[in-house]
Amino acid sequence: MIRAAALACVLAAVPLWAAAHQMIVFASVDCEAVTVEAKFSNGNAVQQADVRVLDGANVLLTTVPIETDGTATVLLDSVDHSTGLVIEVDTGTHDNYWIVTPEDIAKNCQS
């Protein structure tokens, strides 16, 4: 229930244009960092893209570079993640997002 509420809150802030276009974005989290992974549906890593990190109110917090293997790292200490994070990956022709909820962070930090 808490997760659903948190997810709904964060989702409300996600812009409608952030629809999937055969680019897959995923992010995992531990106590120190969010690891972002971006690839195309054919399995190829996204090698050039803007990675934007927004909070639950859709405020841009920071941008991070994407590596040639399609990953990016967001240090938790560098952002206010109390309302969750929205990770947007935008290549200019493809964009997608992953939502990191406060519960995702809490759960994975405990394990």
Binding site: F26, G43, N96
Partner: peptide
């Protein structure tokens, strides 16, 4: 049965 997660059908 097959279940796909998070938009990735690999």
């Amino acid at each position: 049965t097959y279940v796909t997660a998070y938009g990735d059908d690999e």
